[in-house]
Simulated scan of single mutants.
Amino acid sequence: MPAQSSRELARTLGDLAVRMQAQKGTGETLHTIVEAAADIVPGARWVGISLIQGRKVLAKAPTDPIAAKLDELQNELGDGPCLTALRDHQTVHIEDMSTEDRWPEFSRQAMAFGVHSMLSFQLFVESENLGAMNLYGAEARCFSKESVEVGTVVAQHAAVAMFGAAAAGQFQSALASRDVIGQAKGILMHRNNVSGGQAFAMLTRASADTNIKLVDVARWLVSEHESDLE
């Protein structure tokens, strides 16, 4: 994308923050982020996000299969600009793949896909490292100082939005779990003429005896009860 004036950029970033806030769930948020980065950051042709899930780094929401392949390639190689950005907590800039000597195999394969430059930004909030946003360019030296500055701001907005979306998802999941456990308690109270505390103790004992999560035991009981009613 061509450079924008400071006023245009401020308005664009403000609109982006509103759009990300309006998304429902992490998936929609990620797609909004990569599409915005491709539109806003000068030089960006393809964009992908690598998320940390446990001990794995997973490629998510690529704007193009090229971005997905290069994000996944770094996992296969066990090294690359994205993994370095995550590990060293820094922005990584490859100006020209043909002269890049830190990741020779990655650079060689990237050029085979028509990628000649790259920016990788760590996505983090104060308490958590979420992943990295990877921008790929079709020409050498297509990322300028402005690209780095704009990309940094987009990455900051993205990290906050991702953290918020994940927290909202966890909250909804917790509410759903509490609801199904409450239903299961009610079933046991009715079947066995016991108190709520006694019903909950029965659920926790079944969970411990079967080595199955409490919420999954509750879901099974509710499902069985609903089947009996049909």
Rank of each mutant, 00 (worst) to 15 (best):
A59H: 02
R45D: 14
T152A: 15
V150W: 07
P104R: 11
I40T: 15
E72T: 13
L119C: 04
V115N: 01
P62R: 06
A61Q: 06
G80E: 02
T63A: 13
Y136R: 04
K56Q: 15
E72V: 12
V160D: 03
F121N: 02
P104I: 11
A159Y: 05
D64A: 12
P65K: 05
Y136N: 05
A59C: 04
G131Y: 03
W46G: 01
V125C: 08
S117H: 08
V154K: 06
H157Y: 14
P65G: 05
S144F: 10
I66R: 07
G48D: 02
T63W: 07
L135K: 08
R102L: 12
P104W: 12
S144W: 06
N129P: 01
I49C: 11
E72L: 11
R108C: 05
A132K: 02
R55M: 08
S147M: 12
L58R: 11
I94T: 12
A44N: 09
A38S: 14
A155Q: 06
G131P: 08
V160T: 15
E105G: 04
A85V: 03
A167H: 09
A161I: 10
C82S: 10
P42W: 03
G78Y: 08
K69R: 13
L77P: 10
A161R: 10
P42V: 10
S117R: 09
P81S: 03
V150G: 10
A168K: 07
D101F: 02
C82K: 00
S107H: 01
I52M: 13
G131R: 05
A166I: 09
M97S: 04
L77G: 03
N134M: 06
M162D: 06
I94L: 07
R55N: 15
H116L: 11
V148C: 03
V92E: 07
C142D: 12
V150K: 07
R141M: 04
F124C: 11
V41C: 05
G48K: 04
V41R: 00
Q53C: 08
V160K: 07
G164Q: 12
K145Q: 15
L77N: 02
M118F: 12
H93G: 00
E76I: 12
E149L: 15
P104F: 07
C142M: 13
